[in-house]
């Protein structure tokens, strides 16, 4: 079994980095798919999706679930509390007063929505991991990093591809 490598190239010119990605996408390096590519960047690049391809984000579904839970649980919680707390109805109003429950359920919807979004973000976006040997502090400054996992066979081709695109630095590590 051949060795597998993780190769990271750093670019300071973002256009060149995108061009390198574009080359990988168009199979300039046989055996390396765009799905093996990861990017480390100092800023958010919505335009990179054109090159990287659309990758799914599942957070909105969880947010919807959380907010719906807040809505349903909030109402049931309040209603059951009010239904058993009969000291509460005063001055000719119903036992479960909808106007005030709208206000409270609205807040509970947002409360649960917000916390679910936060926890979904923590667990879905690959946080809480070691930065690894390839991590470069320059990424948090002004350079963009392209990480590719490849077999030994493609290793040199990738490196030369990166070099033609004016990569400043190439790091690699062996995996498995």
């Amino acid at each position: 079994m051949s060795k597998r490598y993780r190769i990271k190239a750093l670019f300071s010119d973002f256009e060149e980095a995108f061009a390198a990605l574009s080359d990988i996408r168009h199979s300039k390096v046989p055996g390396v798919s765009i799905d093996d590519v990861k990017l480390n960047s100092p800023i958010e690049h919505p335009e990179i999706e054109e090159v990287l391809g659309e990758r799914p984000v599942h957070i909105p579904k969880l947010t919807l679930a959380g907010a719906t839970f807040g809505l349903v649980f909030g109402f049931l919680f309040l209603a059951s509390a009010q239904a058993t707390f009969l000291v509460q109805p005063q001055g000719g109003k119903p036992v479960i007063p909808l106007p005030s429950n709208f206000v409270l359920v609205y807040e509970m919807l947002i409360f649960f929505g917000v916390w679910t979004t936060f926890f979904a973000f923590l667990f879905m976006s690959g946080l809480f991991r070691k930065r690894g040997n390839l991590y470069s502090e320059k990424v948090s400054l002004d350079q963009i990093g392209v990480i590719v996992e490849a077999d030994e066979a493609q290793r040199d081709k990738l490196k030369s591809l990166f070099k033609t695109h004016k990569s400043l630095e190439i790091r690699e590590e062996e995996i498995q």
Partner: peptide, 12 residues
Amino acid sequence: LGWVGSDRQWRN
């Protein structure tokens, strides 16, 4: 929280 600026992190 282990932020490295990967594309997955930025997307989420």
